[in-house]
Each structure stands twice: as structure tokens, then as C-alpha cells.
């Protein structure tokens, strides 16, 4: 699943959204003048992590002397084409998801998957496709946002579980109750993947939300004992959930990547964005997401605090 699912989950409404935005963009005459703002435009999608990443890129670029504006659009399907046309210049995305988007877009819907759990191989496969569209994938961050399977800390401790392999062994005599989005039983990175790669035996599947609050609640209520969350989710830190290690690399390398349009790219821009990637970890993303999703802080403030604490922009009052 990862972003792939949450994205494909919305495919039904996506075409409607695409049409709606096409009309909107045309109506405002923005396509001609780059969404109607000056400077470098950063396009984000409409979920918390993307918003935070957009603000982080924006502040980092401002610090490098590049004037920026952040534009929040809906899905990657809207943002990527705008980036290709240089209506937007920078976008945060995810390595495996972006590679597969380009793969299907360029090589057709039946193209075999190029993304894997290896960052290097996925980048090597994705970069030529990006160049074909006039885009460059900059350095992937260590931070990943991918499918993660979580248990409660009590459950992990009681049964001495730290990896999905261990859960596979344990489940032979104690079939697992899995909770995830309703598409999980058909997604290769979800239930079928857990069965094939880890030989996990399931007792029941409960259809909930995809990595959202309902899944977390079901875990805490012990209605399920294994729940799908996203590895960068703020819920993990907030509820001390234990993410079982994907020790056989079922999940693809969905590392955070800056994507830039080649025409707009400058050495200063590349250096500033790569500087962010060099510091950003999955743990950072969890904390940043938690601050926005659970503590209701402003993504801009959260982004500024993080950049300052990492020394990427000057500290306050200096």
C-alpha cells in the first residue's frame, strides 16, 4: 500500500478531482502564468506530511536566497504534470511511488514494477524516467513513508516480538487479527505480502482506515493485534506503538525526495534541497507529523523549528 494505496484508493474520486482542477486552473488563467505567483513555486499534495515538507523546502530555499511560494494542490496526479510544464518548480515526493508513477505513465499500465526495497536500484530506475519528463530526482532522504505494521507495546513485550519474521513464527500457533484499509487483502504490499514473505497466519481481517486513527484505536482497544500504519505516522510516537521490523524488505523504498524541474534548477537550489535530505529521518517525520496532526501546530512553525534545530537555517534572533 504505502502512498500507492492511499493514492490508488482515491482513484475513483481522482478523475473527478482532476477534471475539477483542470476547469479551475483554466478558469483562473493560471496555467499561463505559473499559478499566478512570483518566484519559485513549490507544489505539495493535501496531506500533513506533504504540507510540512513543502514548508521545509520553502524555508530552506528562502535561506539560500531563492524566493519561494508554497502551493497546496490535491494529489500527485495534479502536481506532477504541473511540475513537468514548469508551472511548479519543486515538489516533495516519495522515491518508489514517484518511480512507479513515471513507470506506468511512460511504459504503460502493464509495465512491470521498477521500484524495490533498494534505494539505489529504485533511484537508478527512476532517474532516467524523470529526465525523460524534464525532471530531476535529487538526493533521497533517509526518511521513509511506507507501509508499517504495528502492534501495541504490551503485545510486543508479552510475546517478545520485534520483527515481522518473528510474528510469522508466532502466528503459526496464534493466528493474527489484522486491521487495515479495506483494500489490504488484495494489495501485494499488505496482507498477501505478509502471507507470502513472512508466512504470517491470519485469523481475521477487519477493514478500517488506511493508516488512520481508526486503525490506531482498534489496536489500542485490542480489537486487532496487528495494524497497518505509515512508517512516518505521528501516531507511532504518540501511542508508543511498536513497528515490527520489515526484516525481509517487503516494502519498497519510499524515501522522501525533492523533485525539481530541470529548467528551473540551479546549483543553490539543489544544494539547499539536498541539505534537507541529508538530515531528514523517519523519526523526524513522525515527530513533525505528530506536532501537526495531534498537537495542531502550524506546518510552517513546525518546519521552521526543525530546520533551526538541525542548523539548516539560522536560529531565531540572530
Amino acid at each position: 500500500m504505502t502512498r500507492r494505496t492511499s493514492r490508488s484508493k482515491t482513484r475513483a474520486i481522482r478523475s473527478a478531482a482532476t477534471a475539477f482542477f483542470a476547469v479551475l486552473i483554466a478558469g483562473f488563467g493560471l496555467s499561463a502564468c505559473g499559478f499566478g505567483s512570483s518566484g519559485t513555486l513549490i507544489g505539495t499534495t493535501n496531506f500533513t506530511e506533504s504540507r510540512i515538507l513543502g514548508q521545509i523546502y520553502s524555508l530552506a530555499l528562502d535561506n539560500a536566497g531563492i524566493e519561494t511560494t508554497v502551493k497546496e494542490l490535491t494529489t500527485s496526479e495534479i502536481v506532477i504534470p504541473a511540475l513537468e510544464k514548469n508551472q511548479l518548480q519543486v515538489m516533495p515526493n516519495y522515491l518508489a511511488t514517484f518511480t512507479e508513477y513515471l513507470n506506468l505513465n511512460i511504459n504503460g499500465p502493464q509495465a512491470p514494477a521498477l521500484a524495490s526495497s533498494s534505494v539505489e536500484k529504485t533511484l537508478a530506475a527512476g532517474q532516467p524516467l524523470a529526465q525523460e519528463k524534464g525532471l530531476t530526482i535529487l538526493t533521497p532522504a533517509a526518511a521513509q513513508d511506507q507501509n508499517a505494521f504495528a502492534v501495541t507495546p504490551e503485545f510486543a513485550k508479552k510475546n517478545n516480538l520485534a520483527t515481522l519474521s518473528q510474528l510469522g513464527v508466532w502466528s503459526q500457533s496464534n493466528p493474527v487479527n489484522l486491521g487495515a484499509g479495506p483494500d489490504c487483502p488484495t494489495r501485494p504490499f499488505c496482507q498477501p505480502g505478509l502471507e507470502e514473505t513472512y508466512n504470517i497466519k491470519f485469523n481475521s481481517f477487519t477493514a478500517l482506515d488506511t493508516g488512520g486513527p481508526l486503525t490506531v484505536q482498534a489496536l489500542l482497544q485490542n480489537k486487532i493485534n496487528l495494524g497497518l500504519v505509515f512508517s512516518s505516522s505521528g501516531f507511532i510516537a504518540a501511542y508508543d506503538l511498536v513497528v515490527l521490523d520489515d526484516d525481509k524488505n517487503l516494502q519498497a523504498a519510499d524515501n522522501v525526495i525533492p523533485v525539481v524541474n530541470n529548467e528551473a534548477s540551479t546549483p543553490q537550489m539543489v544544494a539547499a534541497l539536498n541539505g534537507v535530505s541529508a538530515k531528514l529521518t523517519t523519526q523526524d517525520l513522525q515527530e513533525l507529523n505528530a506536532k501537526v496532526d495531534l498537537q495542531r501546530q502550524d506546518p510552517l512553525d513546525v518546519a521552521r523549528d526543525w530546520l533551526q534545530s538541525e542548523g539548516l537555517i539560522p536560529p531565531p534572533n540572530s
Binding site: 482513484r11 479495506p182 488484495t186
Partner: peptide
Amino acid sequence: AALVGGGGLGVYVVEGFAIQ
């Protein structure tokens, strides 16, 4: 009910929507 992990005919609708 299918939206909160329950049963019933809504399961088909929710699942059908999720996997298109």
C-alpha cells in the same frame, strides 16, 4: 457499520470503493 470494522452489506461497497 462497514466503515468502522463492522459487517453487513456495506462491506461490499467499502471494499469495492477501496479496490476500485
